[in-house]
Design a protein around this nucleic acid. Structure first.
Lengths: 359, 359
DNA sequence: ACCCCAACTGAATCCCAAC
DNA sequence: CGTTGGGATTCAGTTGGGG
């Protein structure tokens, strides 16, 4: 079904194409839907008559209702393709993002964050009647409230030099050599998204080998970045000219080596090591004393990996919590041993063990 | 009807109070309605302290449908009070803003801009499961598509040091001496908005002598800023304790003869550029090699902006320091790339990016 | 008076594998 | 399905006490 490089461009209507895909088969959906609320193009309206001021309210209602129906349909089709723990990203502006977000919630998606793409070089408001419209909004939502979607927290923290990534992203609009142009030098697609934006989205919510579905592929930015980052991608585009544009673009993209797209992994992915293993392996001896950094609390290690204090016994976490009167405690960081005369958290022993076990 | 200073606090239900106001009598509505936060359990910080979340009765709704009905009702009542060329501002987060925006459109309001309040000091995401929710969204909408609402373009331009005001505003959350506290030092209102935010809204959309209506007055920020800026204000607050709080606060506010120049606004600084952005933007590729000037050390770039050496991984600064055995290292100057066959510090890439981003 | 450090806080939809 | 418990997780800024 998917080509050898894991990237496929389907030319056709996104509803039909998505309904032909297997259920629960994709890890992520990224969608940049049209926000043409006048219902030109693919959004057919029942009443094509031109409206004057008197009928303006009806026109508005028809427009919004039709857009909502269109949104409901493609969201439902996309949701069907998503794995249970999958997620969706959508992007839009104030013209459509509020309807899109409400439709997401109504369809059962669970919003995780809204993200602001702040443009470094937005088009100014020429008439001076409004604020310069300098951002677009993305919504990141899980397939359901109970879903547990991927989030590469540590990779994003790395992207932000050690600080937790915020919900406002500063990125330039797509210009210069990245912007695709036709033979006459006109932009080949009106709303081509910058690759940097998709890079951050895909690093955040997928891992190499995952499958991304883009129902409104357009110029193919999603597929291009997916290929560059070693993800698989199914892109759907109705317009033959845009589909051809995307295919030509993708032929030039080099798929990254697997090793190159590795990203910082969190501690949660590391294999769990029970404290008792430190004792079993002789890194700590039964009877040895652990102390808190401040020296206020001390426990003795027992052969079974539990620890005892004067009035308390249990796991390193339980005893640490009880002695501090705290609801919980990470014993790996709380308890220390004296190594070469200096207090070090027992977590360094765990790290050492992990290194030995992986080598 | 309005007191001599043009500021009135009405204690009571906002629907009834607004229906009692004359039609088409106010110039601007500012509304900070309940966000329908839907908080489930409690949340603790890594140090085990408890986050003081908003779980007030007034923020609980049974369903999205109930929230939508509530929204529809107060929007309709507010719209009735607005002059034909009047406008409305609403504020919210992803919990409610999409429903709020869609309801605005359904009610016949015409969205002019969405505005992002970027917080300088947001609460972090403590569990590392999402992006730090670092902004709130405001929507500015005209009473109707044909309305011609006020917009003090030049006043905002001067607030922004001569540059057209953008749709993203950087302002701190309300803390310090501005934050109202009760006798025991606890915050007197859970969601008090900063005056700087209202200052910018009122300077943008009203002129001295205009009447502002706030249906959810809370701690009274809207009325306080209106008074300070010489605007009239009708604030409605259901909770007697909050209404009393607002009245006491307003008694201390000095009505200005002329709008004072804001200090907190418009401060711009060179943006910090995380190393990861060079990768996102394609100036460096995952897998590319950086080397120290002497050639003694080499690292590989990863997709998330971290770098790896044989036995070390982390940020350009961390790995540089570790390989040199130094306490710290400026990775921007230490690491080099080969450009046109010559080694250049990666700082030249940062400078290039900065130049692009400020243009 | 000044500096330093510890404690505290802000509209928050915040864990998950094993049993 | 529910319960248990290991153990992972924070940034900018203010306040107040001690040296």
């Amino acid at each position: 079904m998917i080509a050898g490089d894991g990237i496929e461009v389907i030319e056709g209507d996104c509803l039909a194409a998505m309904r032909a895909l297997p259920e629960e088969s994709v890890d992520l959906v990224f969608a940049d839907p049209p926000y043409n609320l006048q219902l030109k193009g693919e959004l057919t309206r029942p009443n094509n008559s031109r409206v004057d001021g008197v009928d303006a309210e009806w026109d508005r209602f028809d427009s919004f209702a039709a857009y909502d129906a269109f949104t409901r349909d493609w969201l439902e089709a996309a949701r069907r393709c998503l794995k249970p723990d999958g997620a969706i990203w959508v992007i839009g502006t104030y013209h459509n993002i509020f309807r899109l977000g409400a439709s997401l919630q109504d369809a059962g998606f669970w919003i995780l964050n809204d993200i602001i793409w702040r443009k470094t070089n937005p088009m100014p408001n020429f008439r001076g009647k409004r604020f310069c419209n300098a951002h677009e909004t993305l919504i990141w939502a899980a397939r359901s409230e109970t879903a547990r979607p991927k989030f590469n927290y540590d990779a994003l923290k790395s992207l932000n030099e050690g600080l937790q990534m915020r919900s406002d992203w500063l990125l330039p609009v797509c210009t210069g050599p990245e912007r695709l142009r036709d033979d006459e030098g006109r932009k080949a697609h009106p709303t081509q998204k910058p690759e940097a934006l998709l890079h951050r989205v895909l690093v955040a919510s997928t891992e190499p080998g995952d499958t991304v579905l883009d129902p409104f592929l357009g110029s193919g930015t999603t597929a291009a970045v997916a290929k560059r980052l070693g993800r698989r991608c199914i892109g759907i585009e109705r317009d033959p000219a845009y589909a051809a544009l995307a295919r030509a673009r993708l032929a030039e993209v080099v798929r990254a080596e697997r090793a190159a797209v590795a990203q910082t992994e969190g501690k949660r992915q590391a294999p769990r090591i029970p404290f008792g293993q430190l004792v079993e392996r002789g890194m700590l001896s039964p009877g040895e004393v652990l102390e808190s950094q401040c020296g206020r609390h001390r426990v003795k290690v027992r052969a079974d990996g539990s620890v005892v204090a004067a009035e308390s016994r249990g796991s390193i976490h339980q005893v640490g919590a009880e002695l501090q009167g705290a609801p919980s405690c990470n014993g790996w960081l709380y308890w220390h041993v004296r190594i070469d005369g200096r207090l070090k958290p027992i977590d360094v022993l765990r790290q050492k063990l992990r290194a030995e076990m992986s080598s």
